[in-house]
Design a protein around this nucleic acid. Sequence first.
DNA 1: TCGGTGGCCCTTA
DNA 2: ATAAGGGCCACCG
Length: 244
Amino acid sequence: MTQDPLLAGLAALAADAPEGLYDRIAARWIRMPSRVGELTVAFTDHGVAYVHHGDGFAATFRKRFGRPLVESGRPPSGLMTALRTGRVGGLRLDLRGLSDFQRDVLTAAGSIPRGEVRPYSWIAARIGRPRAVRAVGTALGHNPVPLLIPCHRVTRADGDPGGYVFGAQAKERLLLDEGVDLAGTRELAEANVFYLASDTTGIVCFPTCHNARRITARHRRGFRTLADAAKAGYRPCRVCRPAA
DNA sequence: TCGGTGGCCCTTA
DNA sequence: ATAAGGGCCACCG
């Protein structure tokens, strides 16, 4: 990529062009530490466009984005903390070139708070495509900016964390790091419990919802389905929104 | 209980 | 343009 003729041509063009033109065409890349090891991150003047793990960054970037690349000495502000803590803050993302469906999926995934998880089917319901559950999985598998858009917080309905672009073990590590009680949710799943309710409030939540975690043991009730909970008189939490 | 399986639907080759 | 296949899910035996 260092000897890219297209890149050289564009650089030459830019020399005579208005300030900033080149930056509108090219992307910059930089290596960054993260909770799952070293990453290569590409960004444009619109924000972070691509987060890559492992080898083959340049080839994959070229295939997916077809933009020239130049190395950068300095990360965009906020990127370092976003990667370390999982809190994105005001960091800008460049999500151009994605389909509406993909953008909808990623936006919904981005709404899952740190320390919590939601099923793939929840995303599907939230974006108004309740049957596109599997397509949600593929879209998340193509998330160009993992960690920054927390697709690792989307897990399978059966309690298994499910797959991840950077590997299932990385997903588990991230979730544990964020305070998700994976052992606890697995135990619940084994007992066929996928929702938790409080008999004092009459509200039913996803188990990792911060509201569900505060239910005291004597008032906690578990349900296998939302329908079961509704039948017992519980209404869905307005924060974690277990129903569409 | 668990593995198989059909359904679903978006993307890519 | 069409067919295959994917970070899934619910149901069946």
